[in-house]
Computed example of a mutant assay.
Amino acid sequence: MTIEQKLAQLKTLFSQMDQALIAYSGGIDSTLVAKIARDVLEDRALAITAVSPSLLPEELEDAKVQAAQIGITHELVETREMDNLNYTSNPINRCYFCKSELHDTLKPIALKQGYPYVVDGVNADDLQDYRPGIQAAKERGARSPLAEVGMSKMEVRQLSRHLGLPWWDKPAQPCLSSRFPYGEEITIAKLQRVGRAEVYLRKQGYNNLRVRSDGNTARIELPPEQIKAFVLATDLSQLVQIFQDYGFACVTLDLEGYRSGKLNRVLSQQS
């Protein structure tokens, strides 16, 4: 099936909904969902972004700009997953408690304002990974239009480009809590230092990266083909000092390079 055919299916889905509230993070998936919902439903589509310490301020600003560009009504709501020990203790199903908080916050808003559906940006590829948050969303009646039509992450980018969205190649940016190994407590201070470190590296021109936190050690992950150039071009002593100013004691570079979902390897090792 072509992306044009899947686009037609998505439009049909939204026309059948009549009204929809979009759980909108500003990532490429939820932004595509918001764009199509706005095109089909016009002012009967509402995008809401959850604001919490696990969302970079820069990502929030991107979400605002993108929502304005596609013309969808955009609102912000605060979520309080950091108040839940089931979340901050960082168990392997941490995302379940995050998405539970998100949808327990959005569903009453949707009901109060007359939106029969809450939809998210889960795509078909997400269903193949370990994503306990998807279960939490389904339990609360959320729908995932991209997954429903079988749209992969690559197709999301292709369709976004086809529709003229300038952020079609935007790197994936999951919540900052994904930077910590399971079992390490998550705190606001830790989230902030990871976030500041990643923003610093992006300003140096490295967009597709992660700064993983392991205790007081920062582990930088870059695409493998960029590692050599990074080492040659970077003042390493200055980098270490900057990261130490952020609150890290040590800074390391992952020689394997960036791999999405790397922290989930421990799950397969335990099974």
Rank of each mutant, 00 (worst) to 15 (best):
residue 9 Q to N: 14
residue 11 K to F: 01
residue 12 T to S: 12
residue 17 M to Q: 07
residue 17 M to A: 08
residue 25 S to W: 08
residue 26 G to E: 04
residue 31 T to Q: 02
residue 32 L to W: 00
residue 37 A to Y: 01
residue 41 L to G: 04
residue 47 A to R: 05
residue 55 L to E: 01
residue 63 A to L: 03
residue 69 Q to Y: 04
residue 72 I to K: 02
residue 73 T to Q: 07
residue 78 E to N: 11
residue 80 R to M: 03
residue 83 D to Q: 12
residue 83 D to T: 00
residue 87 Y to K: 11
residue 88 T to Q: 13
residue 89 S to F: 07
residue 89 S to L: 13
residue 99 K to C: 09
residue 101 E to A: 10
residue 104 D to A: 15
residue 107 K to R: 15
residue 119 V to E: 04
residue 133 G to C: 03
residue 135 Q to A: 13
residue 135 Q to L: 13
residue 147 A to M: 05
residue 153 K to N: 04
residue 162 H to A: 14
residue 167 W to M: 06
residue 170 K to H: 08
residue 171 P to T: 00
residue 178 S to N: 05
residue 184 E to L: 11
residue 184 E to Q: 14
residue 184 E to R: 03
residue 187 T to K: 10
residue 202 R to C: 07
residue 209 L to N: 01
residue 213 S to C: 14
residue 215 G to S: 01
residue 221 E to C: 11
residue 226 Q to F: 11
residue 228 K to E: 15
residue 228 K to V: 08
residue 230 F to A: 09
residue 231 V to Y: 11
residue 232 L to T: 12
residue 233 A to W: 10
residue 235 D to P: 02
residue 238 Q to T: 14
residue 238 Q to S: 14
residue 239 L to D: 03
residue 239 L to H: 06
residue 241 Q to W: 13
residue 266 V to E: 05
residue 269 Q to G: 01
residue 271 S to V: 14
